[in-house]
Every structure is written in C-alpha cells, then in structure tokens.
Computed example of a mutant assay.
Amino acid sequence: MDSEVRFKALVVEKAPDGSFTRSIAQRRVDDLPEGELLVRVCYSSLNYKDALSATGHPGVTRQFPHTPGIDAVGEVVSCSDDAFAPGDEVIVTGYDLGMETDGGWGEYIRVPSKWAVHLPQGLSPRRSMMLGTAGFTAGLSVLKLEWAGVRPESGEILVTGATGGVGSIAVSILAKAGYRVVAATGKAADEAFLKELGAAQVISREEVTAGVERALMKERWAGAVDVVGGETLSAVLKSTRYGGTVTCCGLVGSAELPVNVHPFILRAVTLIGIDSSHCPSVPRQEVWRRLAGPWEPQMLDSMATEVTLDGLEEKIGLILQGGVRGRVVVRL
C-alpha cells in the first residue's frame, strides 16, 4: 500500500501553553507507528480511557499529536509476518492501542500482529465494537468467576456501576448464563433499563455501602463484578459470602481500597484483578468466542449509540461526567 495514502482521524494536539485541542485531520499511513499489521478500521468505540486520552490526561497519553481509540475492528490490508492474510477481519483491543500508539479513531491503524484476534464467526464488526473493551472486560470478569467455581446455583451475583459500559454488559451476560443478578447503580431512573438487561433486582449504591464502616457486613453475595473500586469494593468484599469471589476491573469511585483482612481470613473471600489490556491470547480468544455465541448480550442494539468522528466531541464530555449509558460505537 502506498505510504502516502491519506486518511481521516481525530487528532489530539498539545499547545505550547499546555492546553489540548481536538480536530478531524488528514494523516498519512506513513505517519503510523511501526508494526507488522496494517488494518483498515471500520468501527471503533468510546471508552472512559479514550476520553482521558482525548483531554490530555498524562496517565494515559504523553506523546502528542495522538489519535485515541483503544478498540478497533477492520480488515487486514497487509501483515508482514503472515499471522493474518489480507482481507481477514480482526479485532484489536487493549495493549497500547489508543494510549501511546495511534488508535481506532482513525481510518487505519498499524500494530504488532500479536495484538489482534480474528473476528469470531457470527459476530459482525459493528456488534463487536458494541462490545469492545467494555464487553471483553465484562466477559473476562464472568469467565474468572466461572473458573473460581461460582455457578448460577451459588447465589446472587452483584454488579456495581451497572449502567456503565462494563457493568451493563456484565449484567446481560450473567443473566443470559442463568445467574440471579443484582445491579447496583446511582441512577434510579435506569432501573427499567437494567431489568430489561436481565437484572433480577436493582439497588442503590448507598444500599451496597450501608455499614461499610464495620469490620464485616452481613453475608449476601456469592460473587460480584465490581467496576467502581474504593469504598464500594470494600463494602462488596465485606458482604460477600463465605468462599465467594469478587472481580475488580475499575476505579471510577477511587483507586484506593480501604479494607481490612477479615473478608479474606474469616470468610475465605477471593479478590481477582481483571486486566483486559494484556490478557493472554488463549483466554482472550475464549472470551470473544463466547461473546459471539452463548454470551452475546440480549438487547445489544439498544445498549449502543452510534456516532461518526464528528459526533465524538459531545460524547467525550458526557462520558467524563458519567452521563453515558451503555456503549458508544464510532463508525469510521
């Protein structure tokens, strides 16, 4: 492919005064970083980490100009190590995509071939980005609960931050897999939405944290998917039943964890960290296989809003304020 070919991308630039600007610009394929795999992107998505990168957060991106987008799906243009063939449809999520490596908010990406997996049969490119990193993280959380021995008959499963991208998909996956799901949210107006996804009960985040100041709380949860962290995760651990398992994949509440050892040494509670960025290939492929089949969330279309690059500006502000429900898909 001609390296001078130009394509459209959202570009974040840093001004001399330290401020950041965003614009839709023309870039050249030759501007992309090194990598074996060149992909023509058809869809990406908007994640909280993308919004941080788009506003210049130094914990996500330090090198500018930069194109965010930690998710991408598209068609292989070329692959120098023959891991993929031209025309293959691939998903790229995680690793460094959209952080320091130019990401999916551009019509082309170039990345190491090991970052990609084949788009599973039965899953369309658009629907794969309705899932994206959020769906993959939710699926990996459920897989880890399953591997830890948490079954539908084990008891109630709590999902915190349930109206967000990860939380809403986790509710749907768990319900479809036969679990009794309790969804916790700070948005009372979304109760009907969560019940449509399959939640058996919707509770407030205040109900989750009531009594968190105690060393232990009343046992309730057989397992939990926590995307909030902080005091919420502390309360979840303290109220998980003997032998239960909690997965942790987010910090929208706080990165700090104010908890004692009692849940672990008196109730044998297991806390499992979920890292979707550098997840090895075998569980990565297994999660995508299940998301394309038995775990594909019901109501996936109703959980997603589609925008073009031009429509991202409004959504970036909304997601930073906690105002996005479900998923935002970006059509390139």
Rank of each mutant, 00 (worst) to 15 (best):
I173Q: 03
H57E: 14
C249W: 02
R110M: 04
T133F: 04
Y179P: 03
A134P: 01
V166S: 02
R214S: 12
M299G: 10
L266E: 07
M99G: 12
R220V: 06
W221A: 03
I272L: 15
A116K: 11
V324R: 04
S254K: 12
P16A: 15
A170G: 08
H118T: 13
G178C: 10
R289N: 06
V252Q: 07
D310G: 14
M99H: 13
F84L: 09
Q26N: 11
I319A: 06
G223D: 10
R180L: 13
A83P: 04
R27H: 09
E89M: 13
V142S: 06
E153F: 01
V181G: 01
P120L: 06
A138V: 07
V73A: 08
G229A: 08
W288A: 01
I203L: 01
G273H: 11
L266M: 14
D88T: 09
G106Y: 06
Q201N: 05
L251S: 08
I70N: 01
L52I: 13
T133C: 06
S277Q: 15
T247I: 10
N47D: 10
L332V: 14
S23K: 14
E156G: 05
I316K: 04
P65W: 09
S281P: 00
P294M: 04
G122I: 01
V166L: 04
I70H: 00
M1H: 06
L32P: 03
D310L: 06
E13M: 14
E256V: 08
A83D: 13
G104T: 11
P263Q: 03
T245C: 15
A224I: 07
S281F: 02
P16Y: 04
R110F: 02
G317A: 11
D71E: 10
E36I: 03
A85H: 14
L32Y: 08
L237R: 05
E296R: 11
